[in-house]
């Protein structure tokens, strides 16, 4: 994980920035493309150290497969979360039992932790309040279990299994 070369990081940043440029301009005219290549190279040179921790390694076919799988798991959880919240908001008695629980993650890189935190925030009834080293503090709308093991199983296991394969 830590031994990613600078060249690989630079190229990764350049490619991502150039794709964003193409999406913004929405043309393939030659002037636009050349300008985009130059501008994104300059920005990439200035920012590649902070932009990524993975470099080009993320484009390995196996990892791309897991990224796509993660995307579908995430979209499914997001839609489920919304119907869940809709049900709670529209029911006249507000059936909630909130509380803040904690669990420990196995992920090491900061970026993977950020992805996990964002995913937890957008999935049913849970919400990341803080990350201290590798402990997550989660606000939960319907607390059913409080010990760490079962909290981990209930909230994070599905996402973390895929993220471990992508980032470690």
């Amino acid at each position: 994980m830590e031994n990613v070369s600078n060249i690989s990081k630079l190229f990764y940043t350049w490619i991502i920035l150039f794709i964003v440029w193409l999406a913004f301009t929405s043309t393939l005219a030659i002037e636009e493309v050349v300008t985009g290549l130059l501008v994104s190279l300059i920005v990439a040179l200035l920012s590649f150290r902070f932009f990524t921790g993975t470099g080009l390694g993320i484009f390995a076919p196996k990892k791309i497969f897991y990224l796509i799988q993660y995307f579908f798991v995430f979209i499914g959880a997001l839609i489920k979360a919304n119907f869940h919240v809709a049900k709670i908001v529209l029911s006249p008695k507000l059936p909630i039992n909130p509380g803040i629980v904690e669990f420990e993650t196995k992920l090491k890189s900061d970026f993977a932790k950020m992805v996990l935190a964002n995913s937890i925030t957008l999935t049913p009834g849970t919400f990341t309040v803080d990350i201290v080293e590798n402990r997550f503090y989660i606000h939960w709308l319907e607390v059913s279990v409080t010990d760490e093991e079962s909290v981990y199983k209930e909230i994070a296991e599905g996402f973390e299994k895929i993220l471990l394969k992508i980032y470690e």
Binding site: I79, N82, L94, I96, L122, G125, L141
Partner: peptide, 17 residues
């Protein structure tokens, strides 16, 4: 919703999707 954190829950998820 009755308190700040539960409001944040409802607000974030639904308005994002």
């Amino acid at each position: 919703m009755p308190d700040f954190y539960t409001r944040l829950q409802a607000g974030t998820k639904s308005s994002t999707l």
